[in-house]
Write a protein that binds this DNA or RNA. Sequence first.
DNA 1: CGCGCGATTGCATACGTATGCGCTTCAACG
DNA 2: CGTTGAAGCGCATACGTATGCAATCGCGCG
Lengths: 351, 351
Amino acid sequence: MKRPTGKPAKGRQRRARRATSVDVARLAGVSQSAVSRCFTPGASISEKTRSKILAAAQRLDYAPNAIARTLISGRSRIVGVVLPNITNLFYPEVLHELSLRLQAAGLRVLLFNVPYGQQIDDVMPDVLQYQVDGIITSARCSAAVGADCRRRGVPIVFYNREFPELPGSSVKCNQVAGAARLADLLIDAGHRRIGLIAGPDNSPTAHDRERGFVQRLRARGVDLCARAGGDFLYDIARAAARSMLGQPRRPDALFCANDTMAFGAMDAARHDVGLAVPDDVSIVGFDDSGPSRWRGYDLTTVRQPLEAMTAAAVELLVQSFGQPGMPAARRLIDGELVVRSSARVAPPASD
Amino acid sequence: MKRPTGKPAKGRQRRARRATSVDVARLAGVSQSAVSRCFTPGASISEKTRSKILAAAQRLDYAPNAIARTLISGRSRIVGVVLPNITNLFYPEVLHELSLRLQAAGLRVLLFNVPYGQQIDDVMPDVLQYQVDGIITSARCSAAVGADCRRRGVPIVFYNREFPELPGSSVKCNQVAGAARLADLLIDAGHRRIGLIAGPDNSPTAHDRERGFVQRLRARGVDLCARAGGDFLYDIARAAARSMLGQPRRPDALFCANDTMAFGAMDAARHDVGLAVPDDVSIVGFDDSGPSRWRGYDLTTVRQPLEAMTAAAVELLVQSFGQPGMPAARRLIDGELVVRSSARVAPPASD
DNA sequence: CGCGCGATTGCATACGTATGCGCTTCAACG
DNA sequence: CGTTGAAGCGCATACGTATGCAATCGCGCG
């Protein structure tokens, strides 16, 4: 008998020991099992015992140790939320909605911010070490990591991404359809010289938006008259718009692949080139981020239905908790066209 | 012997069992202790054993179970980040910086978003259940909860808040000094009719900014000529500015307690009242949030030194991990005046 | 070649809780 | 009053890892 029971280790105990279920059991005169059942919804326990235990627990200021619970039950009730580049004006709202809904579902959010220049694969091992019950992410992971999650039975939901080759469900705003509606709006307003400021090359979202827009243009017999990359950033888009609109045969309408770039384009038009919006040039964006509503921009755009998307993501995740098969559902949700004053809606009266 | 060792429980095993340190030990032909030491930095282990173990671990695709590690070591390496109302334009950047720095320090972020209308005290028990090593928050908790954390040895760092009566360190931008510099700037530019759009009544930050501004005004012999609440929101501030600037004897300068309200005020001045900024009215804000740099606003404001504040917060937290005494350090960091074009900087040439 | 000492290693235990199983209790029913 | 069954309870064990202690190994020195 090297180390008799009851004699605590020495190096331990750096922090005040909090009461355990054993302490509560002792005080309440019941077994530790009873205490556990008292705090397990749906467990078999009498009302009398429960109240005795609750009283003791309150006196000792006891709360169940979620970590120990996780270890034995195999369920952590933690969801890993893995986001690249939180500063993008769109993610904060996502994270806000997401955390509220997950909390409401009794789940905790373990947040992983993938630093610029790093891949999601680099942080994935860390996520898995914490035994998360599921993962919500808007980044692409490698097939190896995907298989890893599948093997471990950790469901993944891709947010605004879709990777058919990877295991996991996905929730997406229909970027293609949204961009097409903007194309329709511009053409219906009589625009024929239409320019585009695109997002980053590596962003599937940006790609979808561009594709949806250009395809619809083509289908209606119109070609882009200008294109530049804006990287989803204000400054780059503003510079791009400035040079585009400075040309002699300039576009009379501009589609920007997100709102932030549209703000840059509007500022370029007004302040750098001296054009009026929408009288000289119509400008539309995508996202309906906060400043779109501001009087200084009043941007026509497509709103991503955040609430619906987030609700769907949480729903899909919770569903797959039961099924190890992971049915891999796909949800495609339409965005909502928000017409404001940054683009004219009808051809000019006289031509 | 009710349940012989080795016979696994039935209800368990809903997910694929991942390899454990025991599996790795068996494959590598060493003890489980050796595996543990192999993954514990600084532990005593020979190079030969380490490589054997690493090979076995790789074959089994093993990674240590952070939850089990937490249970026995008493340290989770998880930090609870408790934020109210993430949508505030300022918090996303905070969260971004914070998560990056905590991750860099080997810590995980368990995010708690306090829903509107709920108190931080309501979520604190949940935070503590997960055995977090520390807490960073920008909300006030009750004395009871504070004492609770102290007793459990969980250090708290208040971010941009300071509660002398509560245990815990704090990091704060010097709101008072920053607002005073804005007051100086306006007075130096010759403004004497100065209005203020305040933040929410329950926000200490808003309160500090107002106090700092008004005190400096007084000290230099100037009184506020108008005041209204803007609740940190664009729409409310815009309406307030509209009515303020519509008066016959209107202010010729406006201090808004945050940037978002300043944008509302600028839009009100230009579009609702028809005044030029800064020729007819100077407008200043506080935060230096993204749109401040945009050409459409180009706002004179005070930048909160996010990087420094965040670094300090993480540093204070990590420091207190060792000391159960929790020295409760206070860091006050000055903001940086950012002069742009929304406020004139010198008295008009002729009067 | 023997000794001594530091570096490694293995053994055993502990962390706090969930849960299968068997026993007890108790109420309902005939 | 005996029988039956369900509900409640306690016992014992398991989850996966860290760590004190003792035993062992390996190496240098005399």
